[in-house]
């Protein structure tokens, strides 16, 4: 199947994902993804439980071996690699902003943010919006190298706008496609594309 690599790649990122969830991040039709996943299950490359899929350990290893071939052009593309390196810089700031959302300094000590200070929370959301605007300069060259990466940019903007409208679980909520969830998935996608190691 033509898009099997892409579907399994999407499943590696959306672990325990449904066909729709995987389709949503790799930019394929849900019906095509469902077909590919069914084929993967019959070939022993994935397992299914209650509509959610998972790669088998063997499929995880063989998927890892395919990236260098599939993304050889991007790995050799200086503009793409440079954009990725700028992404890593922004990534550091993103994690600082998420931490500022969740914890605050009180008299020199770090405590959980109880969200009692609306001005503080608004300022953090403001910093995230500012980061998003700077990150747009990085998303451009990334999607020029791998067009499907533009999906993440759209999802990030959607999450940001939810947060700006007061639905603050869209900043770092772990069970929804919050800004942090999508960013984290984009980061994982880039690490796989370029064959880099996660450092923390």
């Amino acid at each position: 199947m033509r898009n099997m690599h892409l579907v399994l790649h999407g499943l590696a990122i959306k672990k325990h994902g449904s066909a729709e969830a995987v389709a949503g991040i790799v930019g394929l039709e849900a019906s095509e993804v469902a077909q590919a996943l069914a084929a993967a299950v019959s070939q022993g490359r994935a397992v299914e439980a209650g509509g959610a899929y998972m790669l088998t350990p063997a499929a995880r290893v063989s998927l890892g071996g395919e990236y260098s071939k599939v993304y050889a052009a991007q790995r050799a593309d200086q503009a793409f690699v440079a954009a990725y390196e700028r992404f890593e810089l922004v990534n550091r700031q993103l994690k600082e902003i998420m931490t500022a959302w969740q914890t605050v300094e009180v008299g020199g000590q770090s405590v959980a943010n109880d969200h009692a200070d609306k001005a503080y929370d608004d300022a953090v959301i403001g910093r995230l919006g500012e980061l998003h605007e700077r990150a747009e300069a990085v998303f451009g060259p990334l999607s020029a190298g791998v067009p499907r990466l533009a999906i993440y940019q759209a999802k990030l903007l959607a999450a940001l706008e939810h947060a700006e409208d007061g639905e603050t679980e869209w900043l770092s909520g772990a069970k929804i496609e919050s800004y942090h969830t999508v960013w984290f998935e984009l980061h994982e996608d880039l690490l796989r594309i370029l064959g880099r190691e996660r450092t923390e």
């Binding site: 325990h16 994690k95 770090s110 770092s172 069970k175 942090h180 450092t199 923390e200």
Partner: peptide
């Protein structure tokens, strides 16, 4: 999904702003 299921999370590497930290707090 493992963090959702666990009572606590511990990592070998990374600091208080790491992805693990952000997700655990969330």
């Amino acid at each position: 999904h493992g963090k959702v299921a666990a009572r606590a999370v511990v990592t070998a590497r990374g600091g208080a702003t790491s992805h693990a930290a952000v997700v655990s707090r969330a």
